[in-house]
Amino acid sequence: MSNQAPDVAIATEHLTKRYGERVAVDALTLTVQRGEVFGFLGPNGAGKTTTLAMLLGLVRPSAGRAVVLGVDVAANPVTALARVGAMIEAPAFYPYLSGYDNLRVLCRAGGIAATRIAEVLEVVEMTSRARERVRVYSQGMKQRLALAATLLPDPELILLDEPTNGLDPAGTAEIRQLIRSLAARGRTIFLCSHQLHEVEQVCERVAILKAGRLLAEGQVAALLQRDQRLRVRIEGDASKAIALLKALPWVTDVETAANHLIVVTPTSRAAELNAYLASAGVPVAELAPELSSLEDFFLEVTGET
């Protein structure tokens, strides 16, 4: 597994963590490509943080393996994590040290040049408050400092656990922008978040975990089309169109929305549907796949509704 393709940033193979009888992560097999922004979703207690901790060598897997940037984490954590930046759970700092000194501690521990500190503080806009002790920082400031700490090693792979917790809307937007800019520079980002709207905006692929088990994984766009729904807008009276559509054997259902119809049918039938309505004298003004939101999809898959 350590000889995996060089374009893979994270690969887990039947990764499992058991605490006595309880299975926190259950045979998780996952691949994240280099340069990808990957969303890792799940309700509380799904096993997201435990998975992150196993990827960082902090928690020992009960079974299976985790490979980061081509190196088995359990076998060689020093090499595996050398180019990884991580922010896991709540920001953790020495309260008696300043923000700057907290970063100095991490620089020393990680063998990183102290000149990086000013650069990362600039990125998270914490330069002016860096000399104050962390104990006086707000939650949002701690969150920014944690992000700065994550960026210290100029990481190739960035693991973020709820990075916008405690941030105001402006701060959240800035972090989202930062994630995009890091991705644009070729960094791989593994993002755990409850902010499904945020994940939908920045992630290309997602995986959904519940009770330690992987429920769904794939491209965000593909997952959201999973319902196979077509959005159809008809010029004029829609009642004739509804009757025609309901008569079709490959249409499961037709729902009426504000100014359009939702037709439950495979999206591959779009052209056929258009031709059928046109031949019946019903002009179609708009026809497109109906995308559900990631939140809808998440709630449906996890059964949290």
Binding site: A53, L56, G57, L58, P77, V78, L81, V84, A86, I88, E89, A90, A92, F93, Y94, P95, V105, L106, A109, G110, G111, A149, P153
Partner: peptide, 18 residues
């Protein structure tokens, strides 16, 4: 104990895992 209580052990050992 402080490293455990503050959770800083995690951030330290995820950077220097020895």
């Amino acid at each position: 104990g402080g490293d455990y209580s503050w959770g800083t052990l995690r951030s330290l050992l995820s950077r220097a895992p020895d």
